[in-house]
Write a protein that binds this DNA or RNA. Sequence first.
DNA 1: CCGGATCCCACGCGATACTG
DNA 2: CAGTATCGCGTGGGATCCGG
Lengths: 109, 109
Amino acid sequence: MRDVLDRIGDKWSLLVVGTLRAERLRFTELQRHIPGISQRMLTLTLRQLERDGLITRTVHAEVPPRVEYELTPLGGTLVELAMALADWAIQNHPRIEASRDAYDAAHAR
Amino acid sequence: MRDVLDRIGDKWSLLVVGTLRAERLRFTELQRHIPGISQRMLTLTLRQLERDGLITRTVHAEVPPRVEYELTPLGGTLVELAMALADWAIQNHPRIEASRDAYDAAHAR
DNA sequence: CCGGATCCCACGCGATACTG
DNA sequence: CAGTATCGCGTGGGATCCGG
């Protein structure tokens, strides 16, 4: 459980698998789809996900080189869960915001 | 989404709400149920969860003081999602482990 | 185009000590 | 019992430069 949380709980992993949900993408395309991610973090995140068997990395022997990433079936199942989480987040975000405001108002001193 | 991930992705929050899933508990009881958590982190985590409206904190005016924490309905819905995630983790952990071993073996140099 | 290697700092978190 | 206060470090991650 900790293992899985460490994977999906970090700053970028979910964003990456979410982006790969629909389409197979190249490194630079991923970078464009995920604003704010640095080259370094994209590389590291992709390596982790590949190591865990959630995505595959295919290098095409061409010049210039082309590397494509796509979800594995295992990664696909995780994405579905993530989407459920996203739904929950969207549905309940207003409630959470309201609760925070109330809390902050009550504890303002 | 980031908001929610920050909440459940941190080191202790899920452990705390998971522990509160079945029963209302006091501070010290929580501490006993979650090995390794420090007083400080338990306090901070509880404050965050309370602020977000996922748990409630009730102080009983007694000596010695008694403070009890329990899940709100909102917190309950989150726990259900978390349990789905836990199921996924348990089911797929062997696969992930295997993938890691294979990856490490292939990249050992 | 797709990264690897370094440098560096903010901050998450643990350890410890103190209090109403 | 249920916290708060303070210190110190480990490390996640951004910026930057280099290389096949």
